[in-house]
Design a protein around this nucleic acid. Structure first.
Length: 102
DNA sequence: CAGGTGATTGTTGGC
DNA sequence: GCCAACAATCACCTG
């Protein structure tokens, strides 16, 4: 069971020591990201003048408020985005074999 | 084979 | 540029 205490740990790693990738192929976005993109302007519209605290929270609440079907389009994108990352990883792997000739 | 870990993704808003 | 809740993710590496 992973410990989810502190929200963001940014660079504060607690494990031995892992080195980041040179190309850092990053991962794909998350359904939430796509959903947020839509609500972002919507939520803010329903709550004009609210700070991130409200928006962020409301976003998460509404996010789940949606039904699987509503999340589908977002998940779909998330999966597609994932593939996108796969591509990076592919290049990243290839680069590892022959580094950049440059 | 199985596990868990971390890294990342995007929103807003201020310094 | 970074940080914060909010959520998902899930590929990565290891023993």
């Amino acid at each position: 069971m992973p410990k989810e205490k502190s929200t963001r740990k940014t660079k504060a790693r607690g494990v031995e020591k892992k080195k980041k990738d040179p190309n850092a192929p990053k991962r794909g976005l998350s359904a939430y990201m796509f959903f947020a993109n839509e609500q972002r302007d919507v939520v803010r519209e329903e709550n004009p003048g609210i700070s991130f605290g409200q928006v962020g929270k409301l976003l998460g609440e509404k996010w789940k408020a949606l039904n699987e079907v509503e999340r589908r389009p977002y998940e779909d994108k998330a999966q597609t985005d994932k593939k996108r990352y796969e591509d990076e990883k592919a290049s990243y792997n290839a680069a590892d074999e022959d580094e950049e000739s440059n």
